[in-house]
């Protein structure tokens, strides 16, 4: 039986997340994969059209219900479980959306989940990181069990566009009433999104205050870069939680990552090791960040960052 793969779309009601195109890219590395994307939304048309255009997608299924205006795992999981019968694999991104949702689907299907798939060896063999990326294991799903998985998005280039997959509607199942969305406080920003930006400027504890973090924002704007932060900087209140890069924050793979005043705890390095070029600026020449940096500069960030700003102009 050739692999029949269902991918759960991540979106905000208007736009399909690039993480979904990365799931498609992952699924497409499974030989002979037939790929279906399912969009659960209050109004699915716009997102479904974007999903239908992603190269490699064969079919899009929409499920419309008012409960899906906000992504609640408790409402989406039974819907996906109801659709999953004919599929050999059910995949979602390893974002907080997918991390929340996919295990709930796996349990409803009484099957195994492979978290953070970083490489596909076959339809049943995958590589994934453990111990904050300090080891990589090869796992094999046994006995024809259905595979539920989250895709480590930093490991895959997003699939392009150009497909014209057919779109079908599926009927919604009755959602549970025990879980209700209240609010989301997302910082409105004109800066590039941290998870998809080509360039990221990231700050650590050495910034010393939320005020000096402003210097980082100015520098990032000059570079058209997104802003990130280490856990220490977030814990200290210098930056909001959604900027955290690392094992428990965001795992990113930009073309250029500039770590400023970040010592480079292993949990942070986990989040950046797929970056194409890593630049480290730190006054401690022994800081572990220099072990992974392509270009290192030892010095006082409060002198260097303004100089860089001037040089870049």
């Amino acid at each position: 039986m050739s692999p029949n793969i269902l991918i759960v779309a991540e979106h905000n009601g208007r736009t399909l997340s690039v993480a979904t195109a990365k799931c498609v890219a992952c699924a497409a590395t499974i030989p002979d994969a037939h790929i279906t994307v399912v969009v659960c939304a209050a109004n699915a048309a716009a997102v479904a059209a974007q999903a239908a255009a992603v190269s490699g997608v064969h079919r899009v299924v929409t499920v419309e219900h008012p409960i899906h205006e906000h992504p609640l795992a408790a409402a989406i999981a039974p819907q996906i479980a109801a659709l999953a019968g004919p599929y050999s694999h059910v995949l979602g991104p390893s974002s907080t959306f997918g991390k929340d949702l996919m295990p709930r689907i796996a349990a409803l299907l009484e099957t195994v989940q492979v978290s953070d798939i970083m490489a596909v060896e076959s339809a049943t063999r995958f590589r994934r990181p453990i111990y904050a990326g300090n080891a990589v294991i090869t796992v094999e799903v046994l006995d024809g069990a259905k595979v539920v998985g989250t895709v480590r998005t930093a490991s895959f280039q997003a699939a392009g566009t150009g497909a014209q997959a057919p779109i079908e509607a599926a009927s919604p199942v009755a959602p549970p009433t025990h879980t209700r969305f209240v609010s989301v406080s997302a910082a409105k920003s004109d800066r590039p999104d941290l998870q998809t930006a080509g360039k990221v400027v990231s700050g650590g504890r050495a910034l010393g205050s939320a005020e000096s973090f402003q210097m980082l924002y100015r520098f990032a704007d000059k570079l058209h870069a997104a802003v990130g932060a280490s856990r220490a900087a977030v814990d200290a209140g210098y930056a909001p939680n959604e900027l955290q890069v690392g094992q428990t924050g965001k795992i990113i793979a930009p073309e250029l990552y500039i770590a400023i005043g970040i010592s480079g705890a292993i949990q942070h390095l986990t989040g950046i090791k797929d970056a194409r070029t890593i630049v480290a600026i730190n006054k401690d020449p022994e800081a572990p960040i220099f072990e992974v940096a392509d270009i290192g500069l030892v010095g006082d960030l409060f002198e260097i960052v303004p100089q860089l700003e001037q040089l870049i102009g």
Binding site: T111, V112, V114, P129, G133, N134, A135, V136, I137, T138, V139, E140, V141, L142, D143, A145, K273, I278, E291, V292, A293, D294, I295, G296
Partner: peptide, 16 residues
Amino acid sequence: QLKTPRYAPPAQRHKG
């Protein structure tokens, strides 16, 4: 439902 045939160290970045 899962076996783990192999544990390996992660790919190392070259020192810059």
